[in-house]
Amino acid sequence: MNYENILTSFQNGITIITINRPTKLNALNKATIKELHEAFKSANDDINTKVIIVTGSGEKAFVAGADISEFADYDSKKGKKLAKKGQELLFNFVENLSTPTIAAVNGFALGGGLELAMACHFRVASSNAKMGLPEVSLGVIPGYGGTQRLPQLIGKGRAMELIMTAGMIDANQALNYGLVNHVTTPEELLPQCEKIAGKIARNSSVAISAAIKAINANFKDGLDGFEVEISEFGDCFDTPDFTEGTTAFLQKRKADFLGR
């Protein structure tokens, strides 16, 4: 599929989605959010895609924020609709994908950009990355899940300070906070993500999908994460991947998972 604002590529079981609006520092507008939804859905539905990596074009920005010009004149009703639709279409959608998703954070990840990175299953940052949620400096708050996911990842106090000050943290501080898993050079960012993706791809995609669902359940109201884990654990026993995995272990060979 041809996109106007993003690029996609596939190799060795990895789909890379690149937000490609360099003149706007890859800012998220409505069209880009819609295209990202379509690209993530397509990759998630493709049995050959074992891992998704999302990044920004160039070295300056992963995503420098939302395209403010699109909503500067909105009222309360339109603002609520914007946040609700965006969360459903992209941010919550990405968080709940069954395919593992890595954010390769290059350069600025601000506002909606950091919210997109946080919606991914984990994050790897380049050494020049800067992250923050500066929305209060515009008289608004994060609306794409930032007030929820940031405290989950770095703790309430740190999240409160970062949001209230509208400040930015660098890659090393993000690593110290647990916001990102690894920091590497800009040149090694994608290779590092691909290396991790390769390790993931060798495992059972069915089991990984179940693990994602169980882990996410711990952060959702009305769900008992332990019960979800028990259910997903049990369901794994009825899959060909479980049969292959246990048989391979007993036969002292590498498993050849079918993804079923």
Rank of each mutant, 00 (worst) to 15 (best):
L189Q: 11
N96S: 04
M160D: 11
G222V: 08
N48T: 05
R21M: 00
D241H: 12
N44A: 14
L97R: 02
P100V: 02
K77S: 07
M131A: 13
F219I: 03
F10L: 00
K254N: 12
D221T: 11
I68S: 07
D235T: 10
I102M: 03
Y144G: 03
H182N: 09
F40V: 02
A211E: 07
T239F: 08
L190N: 04
E35R: 01
V206Y: 12
T165F: 05
A72M: 13
A171E: 05
T49V: 10
V136A: 00
K254F: 12
S209Y: 08
A31Q: 12
I14K: 11
K84R: 09
I6Y: 07
S127P: 05
G58N: 02
K220A: 11
E115A: 06
D73Q: 12
K254D: 10
I6N: 01
R21Q: 10
K85A: 12
P22R: 08
I19L: 13
D221F: 10
D45W: 04
G58C: 06
L114P: 12
A166V: 03
R123I: 15
G58V: 03
D45K: 12
N26E: 08
S126C: 06
V105D: 06
A66G: 09
S137P: 00
I230A: 15
V51G: 03
E194Q: 12
A31V: 10
V124H: 02
I212L: 15
R260H: 04
I17P: 10
R158D: 14
K78E: 15
E115Q: 14
N203I: 00
A31L: 10
A104C: 01
T247A: 14
D75S: 01
S69H: 03
K80P: 00
G132V: 07
N26W: 09
L36I: 11
N44R: 04
E88M: 14
N203A: 04
S57D: 12
T55G: 00
T184H: 06
L179H: 05
T49P: 01
T23A: 06
L97T: 01
F257P: 01
R260I: 04
K84P: 01
A61S: 15
E244G: 00
G143S: 05
C236P: 05
S42M: 14
L223F: 15
V136K: 07
F91I: 02
I208Q: 12
T184K: 08
G146E: 09
A64E: 11
